[in-house]
Design a protein around this nucleic acid. Sequence first.
DNA 1: GCAAAAGTGTTTGCTCTACACCCATGT
DNA 2: ACATGGGTGTAGAGCAAACACTTTTGC
Lengths: 229, 229
Amino acid sequence: MSYTYKYAKPAVTADCVVFALDEEDLKVLLIQRGQEPFKGQWALPGGFAEVGESLEDTARRELEEETGLKNVFLEQLYTFSKPERDPREHVITVAYYALVNLADHEVHASTDASNAAWFGIDDIPALAFDHDAILTTAHERLRGKISYQPIGFELLPEKFPLRILQSVYEKILDRDLDKRNFRKKILSMGILQELDEIETDVGHRAARLYRFNKQEYDRKVEQGFNFKM
Amino acid sequence: MSYTYKYAKPAVTADCVVFALDEEDLKVLLIQRGQEPFKGQWALPGGFAEVGESLEDTARRELEEETGLKNVFLEQLYTFSKPERDPREHVITVAYYALVNLADHEVHASTDASNAAWFGIDDIPALAFDHDAILTTAHERLRGKISYQPIGFELLPEKFPLRILQSVYEKILDRDLDKRNFRKKILSMGILQELDEIETDVGHRAARLYRFNKQEYDRKVEQGFNFKM
DNA sequence: GCAAAAGTGTTTGCTCTACACCCATGT
DNA sequence: ACATGGGTGTAGAGCAAACACTTTTGC
């Protein structure tokens, strides 16, 4: 089977930069390529767009095929189109970034990719194609966006103590924040629901749990509210 | 001549949302389509990507071919990929936005497009494809970005009085700004070079001219400076 | 009782906003 | 002389940053 067109066409792929947090640091999900080019090297999960499929769907499909991840928070990042970025032919890639919380999302290396693993953001191996540039762009976007969009919650389980939320900001912004100021600011926005639950299994006083109140956030946005941390 | 591939490929285009300002309002450059589909309707300038060409180059090439505009400020906006956005086949478009100053850039309707013209942002005709959504996205991006990146200058000639710069912000943000506060804030950043020149041909006291000092801006950015209006 | 983290207010400086008048120039 | 916009300062409010101790709980 083959497809013939009147004009030459570049190929199109979607690639995903998947971020997660553990106790240590910000992590990125990579796969080890099972095929040439760059066979055996680490790369971002992703693959070719099918006709009739939006690129966000391509990204989600490839992410699930290669790593088992699904139902993740996903936003378009940037489109990379330099002709020399793929040695085989001109391949345009539309990059997405995803935020997941490690607890809810077990990763299975699956079909296409011979292996999938999390890497600390400061400990990334050599990557295939221009994936290092894509990763850098994604990291910058995340850093820029977390302060004015409520996306940090996507890296956490549904219920979380404020200390953990603070650590999300500290790890992404890469600087320490003042505990009192952080709590004042985030609570004063009125978009966190205070739960009647506390942490369990901690070796010290248990903290109260909170939940991001998306309904309330959306209502406030309607009225001109702007998230700002 | 034809091209055959092992897999089906979507087509790829680049489209441009070109903004400019006149005394009245924010304007957008549209072309009237010379071919089906949507023949005779207004649309964003743009066209098909060639293999071996980056999409930014595609955007610049098509913009010049269709409107005569070149050497414009151009940034990638977003990639639109819903399969139904083009009635012929699956066409992915990578949208760019451009900022030009009307004085320096004469527009000639040229080859491909039967006609090109500026439209006030509040007076846009029905557009081909999903170009209304692209335009809306571009307008939002411009509004969001002008406050934290020094891109407003791209809409002005090299030398300008502060009143005109203020009107750029007022027209894009769509609200009045206080003259004293505006001047204080923009001058305090130290990225405008005060020239020994004043306006000519005005029917009142002539204002001093300024120039955006990109060297100084870049130097400050290196040192952690953030533009903010 | 000790270790670990939860939880809590106040002061200070800075930034943003609101606001009005005199001056220079051209017609 | 009149119309038009150029150019300038200050006071008050709100926001951001710095800073330390007491309480709770688990071991």
